[in-house]
């Protein structure tokens, strides 16, 4: 019968125990971010399938209509159209990123994660999610190509006019854009976590000033042509690669902003 005085995992000196490996700590954050499979996988896929289904149905109706028109003596003009439905995923992932930072930061810190663990783990989560969904989009772009646009010449996942119906370009493009959306979402959420509403006002006001200022500057110096030329020269993939600058900025911002943030709730 002894007094209950021995701490459980502290070392013999009663000091802090040896540190758990960084990988274990990052894995814990990843588990936190991915535990709810419904939210990060089931729902987006279900909505995606639903949108695709609606699109196929609509294109069926249009096709019927144009065929009827042709039979009536009009022009039958069946064209390959890219409808950009996949952009839904970009927006959805942005929201996931916002939630991943805003709703999990306080819990993770209460459960003994450091801010650094949380930031690195969450950014890893962004990369893995972007890679997984890019892989899905690129694969479905291939299916789309093989089935002649779901039998309806419908292009939902890959735009052939931009060369994004091929696997590798589709994979790279989707990955870069998804990562951009997630990092920006995460960065904005981190500003909210640290500075709350005030942070949001300052952030959006600042962003507006920068965008309007840049547009004014380009217009004033009559450089819109140059800007257009830049994107034309860079091409779709080139432009996508240039977003890495933005992505890197957002990622760095997220890390630095969270580094000394205090969970309020």
């Amino acid at each position: 019968m002894t007094a209950p005085t021995t701490p459980v995992t502290t070392d013999a000196r009663g000091g802090a125990p040896a540190s758990r490996p960084l990988t274990t700590r990052i894995a814990a954050i990843l588990r936190l971010q991915t535990a709810n499979v419904a939210n990060i996988l089931v729902w987006p896929l279900a909505v995606l399938v639903f949108i695709l289904f609606i699109n196929v149905a609509i294109s069926e109706i249009i096709q019927q209509a144009t065929t009827n028109a042709a039979e009536a003596g009009g022009e039958a003009d069946i064209t390959i159209t890219f409808n950009g439905g996949v952009a839904f995923l970009y927006i959805y992932m942005l929201i996931i990123a916002v939630q991943a930072v805003y709703l999990s930061f306080s819990l993770a810190l209460g459960w003994g994660a450091t801010r650094r663990d949380f930031a690195v783990g969450t950014l890893t989560f962004f990369v893995l999610m972007s890679a997984a969904y890019a892989l899905l989009i690129a694969t479905l772009a291939q299916v789309e190509q093989a089935t002649s646009g779901w039998g309806r010449e419908l292009r939902f996942f890959g735009d052939p006019s931009l060369g994004l119906d091929e696997f590798a370009p589709a994979l790279l493009f989707s990955f870069l854009i998804l990562l951009l959306f997630m990092s920006v979402g995460g960065a904005v959420a981190s500003v909210y976590v640290r500075w709350r509403a005030t942070g949001m006002y300052v952030f959006w006001a600042g962003l507006a000033i920068i965008v309007v200022g840049a547009a004014a500057l380009i217009g004033y110096t009559d450089n819109w042509g140059t800007v257009g030329q830049f994107f034309a020269d860079a091409g779709v993939l080139g432009t996508a690669l240039w977003t890495l600058v933005l992505t890197a900025t957002a990622t760095l911002a997220l890390y630095l902003v969270l580094r000394w943030a205090t969970p309020r709730d």
Binding site: T9, T10, A16, P17, S19, R20, R25, L32, Q33, A35, N36, N39, Q99, A100, L103, S104, S106, L107, L109, G110, W111, G112, A113, T114, D265
Partner: peptide
Amino acid sequence: MSTLCFVKEAQKYPE
């Protein structure tokens, strides 16, 4: 931090 557990009064949980 790995020795701590802080149960907060109004804890938020992920979505």
